[in-house]
């Protein structure tokens, strides 16, 4: 009988949308396994699936717990709800909303008391400009600015005397104005009293390319970059 129920539950995960009645497991917490902090173009499918796990009070995975994802800001999911598998995990594919910016995807489950436990997964949707900037940055900048080294692409970070800042380093980069960032990229480090290790790209990239790079640096910043309000002269 129990086996039959289990099969029924597993069937639900695979096929139809689960009904609340089919959910048997109740956890104490919902945690992220993978899929947070991804970056994609606005409106695009996130490359990696979102995987969340429902745990009980002792931290052990809970099977057959109902998980729901909420489509705030136009994000859609395939599927948007379901039951956790035997490993306590639930996976879904997310498509970001059409607006560029920061997204907080909300995943919820019910705990044993029937209260909602939730998890927020931050994701970043890039504007067209930032997408171009990301592409340029991958090609021209990340060899030094990204510490991450792989066999396919070795980072030059360790070879530099003055260490470059990762473009995600919002704590540092958010304090530099757009015009200063543009000056560093265009004229190289010495333009703002930094070493010549940062070469000038003003004769290599177009003005629009450099604007795109600044847009990408702003989009990728962690903590997020807060755009300053433009101050207009009063009439």
């Amino acid at each position: 009988m129990l086996t039959a129920l289990m099969i029924l539950c597993l069937g639900c995960v695979k096929h139809g949308p689960p009904s609340a009645a089919a959910a048997k497991g109740n956890g104490a917490a919902i945690v992220e396994v993978s899929g947070g902090n991804q970056i994609a173009a606005a409106g695009a499918v996130l490359e990696q699936p979102l995987v969340v796990q429902v745990n009980d009070a002792k931290g052990a995975p809970v099977a057959s717990a109902a998980v729901t994802l909420h489509d705030a800001q136009g994000t859609t999911f395939q599927p948007n709800s379901g039951l956790t598998g035997a490993d306590g995990q639930f996976a879904t594919i997310a498509t970001l909303g059409a607006q560029a910016g920061r997204y907080q995807i909300l995943a919820t489950a019910k705990d044993t008391g029937g209260k909602t436990v939730d998890l927020r997964l931050p994701e970043i949707a890039l504007s067209y400009e930032a997408t171009i900037g990301r592409h340029l940055s991958d090609y021209y900048c990340s060899r030094c600015h990204d510490q991450e080294s792989s066999a396919e692409r070795v980072s030059n970070y360790d070879n530099l005397i003055e260490k470059p800042h990762a473009f995600t380093d919002g704590a540092f980069l958010n304090r530099i104005s757009d015009s200063d960032l543009t000056a560093i990229i265009t004229h190289g480090g010495p333009a703002v009293g930094k070493p010549a290790e940062m070469p000038p790209y003003g004769a290599t990239l177009h003005k629009s390319d450099i604007e795109a790079l600044v847009a990408w640096i702003r989009a990728a910043a962690d903590p997020p970059y807060q755009q300053k309000e433009i101050v207009y002269a009063q009439p």
Binding site: Y139, P200, A203
Partner: peptide, 13 residues
Amino acid sequence: AALRARTLEPNWS
């Protein structure tokens, strides 16, 4: 870039 398009070496003017 005039000798090899898309080279990583920047144009130093």
